[in-house]
Design a protein around this nucleic acid. Structure first.
Length: 412
RNA sequence: GGAGGGAUUCCCGAGUGGCCAAAGGGAGCAGACUGUAAAUCUGCCGGCCUUGCGCCUGCGGAGGUUCGAAUCCUCCUCCCUCCA
């Protein structure tokens, strides 16, 4: 029993930024056939993170409404890199790497997507063999002036910074993917709007009905901060190191989520939580009125997300350990055990470095001098301190790096 | 094809012969404060050890000048801008 088109539109509209256009989309929904919905993913970052899940949840909604989602791995366009002015042409990935990344995508993506309604494709399938004539035809579909409307290009023109010709190919190729797949809808992050619009124009040039466009908000990374009541920060991205990866172990995922600033927590609730808007608003009111502690509300968020990508039991356990280690300052149940050998007293700085708690001996000395090191529960601030052989020590560096260091006597 | 500008420690960016492991900012780490929040303040921020006003590595690459070079000279590599 298919959902009525108007109702489908309602579901699709929820939480989106752009929808071009509702009228066109409604008409396609009314056709009654399953629509082809394309979403592109960069092949160089096989670690999916929470940022990806925003769009993936929207994909899932389409699937639940009976449509087909094409999970398109941009292995060919990945060689170019979406133009940012920074990126260099990337070396093509080997067939093995592509296959491996695709595999990783599959296992991670299906934590959210419905495998039955997902088609996995790679755009090298058709782009790698595109010949000169085809390229000319494609390039003829768009003008330089319109290309320069793109923010990033416009900015570089203004600043007289270089733009390589091949960067123009990225949006064109992405558009060509839509031609090849006869897309009804292309879905992406808000930052993709330009590329998606190019897709519409190019499709028209090929005599196809232009795809509808749906964009969702871009999730800020864990390092985003509040400024003048607004959230300011780069998008979540692996290269910026501000992600919460789906594959992060429970403790790590929990810890990362607890470290976000309060205003960001609401953003995450809005874009990632199962709670509906009203429930989130209620939580927000509770915190504002002092009825709830922000920390507890953040714990709730962290547990929900860890529970979804692992399981509720793991989430509860992670919460417990978090409390013990970070609130109580105790050592976790399992600390790495390191065994070192020495005949004479072993310098503490050296031991810390060898145990992997610091980058180098010099670094360890600095940490000791700044008061970051505890041995068996008491702070050591003498950089020349040493550990006697034949004993075991609990060494703590910083707030949460621990190791059980055993110094074994070494014979002559 | 012609003219000019540039390459500095993780990033940006000072530095035109010794006082430079190299200003300043960012990032990062640590301490204080906390809710392991965030913001703020403070410190650190190449490596090694026999911890010494010690040694080694370091300013695109290779040579050279000099008692001494990130700073001067030569060649090379790469990048950018403008003109055509």
């Amino acid at each position: 029993m298919p959902t009525p088109p108007e109702q489908q539109l309602e579901v699709i509209r929820r939480g989106t930024v752009d929808l071009i256009s509702e009228k066109e989309l409604l008409a396609r929904l009314q056709s009654g056939r399953p629509l082809t919905v394309k979403v592109g993913f960069d092949p160089t970052a096989p670690d999916l993170h929470l940022g990806h899940t925003v769009v993936m949840r929207k994909m899932r909604q389409f699937q639940d409404l009976g449509h087909t989602v094409v999970f398109l791995v941009g292995d060919f366009t990945g060689r170019i890199g979406d133009p940012t002015g920074r990126s260099k042409t990337r070396p093509p990935l080997s067939a093995e790497e592509i296959a491996r990344n695709a595999e990783t995508y599959k296992t991670q993506a299906f934590k959210i997507l419905d495998p039955q309604r997902t088609v996995l494709r790679s755009n090298s399938e058709w782009l790698a063999s595109l010949d000169g004539a085809a390229l000319v035809r494609l390039a003829a579909q768009y003008t330089v002036a319109r290309m320069l409307e793109r923010d990033d290009f416009a900015k570089r023109v203004r600043e007289q910074r270089p733009i390589s010709i091949h960067e123009f190919l990225y949006p064109l190729f992405q558009a060509y993917d839509s031609v090849e797949l006869r897309c009804d809808v292309e879905l992406g992050g808000q930052d993709q709007l330009f590329n998606l619009v190019v897709g519409r124009e190019v499709m028209k040039g090929y005599g196809l009905a232009p795809q509808c466009i749906v964009t969702v908000p871009v999730l800020e990374g864990t390092d985003a901060r509040e400024e003048d009541g607004r959230i300011v920060g780069e998008k979540m991205s692996k290269s910026l190191g501000n992600t919460v990866a789906l594959e992060d172990p429970p403790d790590e995922m929990f810890g990362k989520l607890m470290s976000i600033c309060d205003p960001l927590m609401w953003r995450y609730y809005e874009l990632l939580s199962e709670l509906d808007a009203a429930a989130v608003r209620a939580l927000r009111d509770d915190v504002a009125q002092g009825r709830a502690h922000p920390r507890d509300v953040k714990v709730r968020l962290a547990r929900e997300l860890v529970g979804r990508f692992h399981d509720p039991a793991a989430a509860a356990a992670a919460a417990g350990r978090f409390d013990k280690v970070h609130r109580g300052g105790e050592a976790p149940d399992e600390v790495p055990v390191v065994s070192l050998r020495s005949s004479a007293p072993l310098r503490l700085s050296r031991a810390i470095a060898q145990a992997g708690l610091a980058a180098s001996g010099s670094d360890a000395q600095r940490l000791i001098q700044s008061g970051a090191v505890e041995v068996d529960g008491s702070r050591v601030s003498d950089k020349d301190a040493s550990l006697a052989p034949g004993a075991s020590y609990l060494v703590k560096v910083g707030k949460r790096r621990f190791a059980r260091v055993t110094v074994e006597k070494e014979g002559p």
